[in-house]
């Protein structure tokens, strides 16, 4: 299993430095990054995931296990992402969303749909495969997003306040599900949040960045 190493990462927007961080996240462990909005904590995930917008400048290295991934394109980093919004692809069916995420080595339409159905069942949505993502509830969408991420065989998970838009009851439930699945898959997780409860639930180390200037 591969851990995730952040080596002397700095990110700036033009002349304005946003953050600097070094950290090591073990497989199955969650590093929580806290900071006020506008502190640039989301750009950290963008840098690790390889989709930092061109207007930011950044330095430092990212290692997945022993392999440096800093200069790899995003699609070769295998960073499972969960955002505030579930971001289900609105033009695909629920199962289509999950099937899209399956690695290419799973061949054949029937085999892929079967795997997708299994992944949906795994998050408690066995009968929803043919449905339109737009008709799901907020909690159901979050589960589909999680299932979609997990089937893609990620090497890490990057969570950008993924629970903040869920109402309180649902929030704990989804949070527990996500962390349970991540631990079960022995994935290193980085969670970006400004919610203390998220940090507690994650259970791992917490760093705070971008103190208000």
């Amino acid at each position: 299993m591969n851990g995730l190493t952040l080596d002397a990462i700095t990110i700036a927007l033009g002349q304005r430095p946003l953050l600097a961080i070094s950290a090591r996240v073990a497989p199955g462990e969650t590093l929580t990054v806290m900071g006020a909005s506008g502190s640039g904590k989301s750009t950290l995930l963008a840098y690790i995931g390889g989709f930092l917008a061109a207007e930011f400048s950044a330095s430092g290295r990212v290692y997945s296990g022993d392999a440096e991934i800093t200069s790899l394109p995003a699609e070769d980093r295998h960073a499972g992402l969960l955002f505030q919004d579930p971001l289900l692809f609105p033009h695909m069916s629920v199962a289509g969303n999950v099937a899209f995420a399956l690695p290419a080595n799973i061949k054949g339409r029937a085999a892929r749909l079967e795997q997708a159905a299994a992944a949906l069942a795994d998050v408690g949505l066995a009968d929803y495969g043919d449905g339109d993502p737009a008709t799901l509830s907020g909690g159901q969408k979050a589960r589909v997003a999680l299932a979609r991420t997990l089937v893609s065989e990620p090497r890490m998970m990057l969570l950008d306040e993924p629970f903040s838009k869920l109402d309180a009851g649902l929030r704990a439930q989804i949070r527990d599900l996500v962390f349970a699945k991540a631990r079960a898959a022995m994935l290193p997780v980085i969670l970006v949040t400004h919610d203390e409860a998220d940090a507690r639930a994650a259970g791992g180390p917490v760093v705070t960045i971008g103190e208000d200037a």
């Binding site: 394109p73 995003a74 699609e75 070769d76 919004d85 899209f100 995420a101 979609r148 893609s152």
Partner: peptide, 21 residues
């Protein structure tokens, strides 16, 4: 919303596939 593309890239999809799909 470019996060859709970030999600697809994170799922290991090449850029042209993300573009087309």
């Amino acid at each position: 919303d470019r996060r859709y593309e970030a999600v697809a890239a994170g799922l290991g999809k090449r850029r042209w596939r993300t573009l087309l799909a």
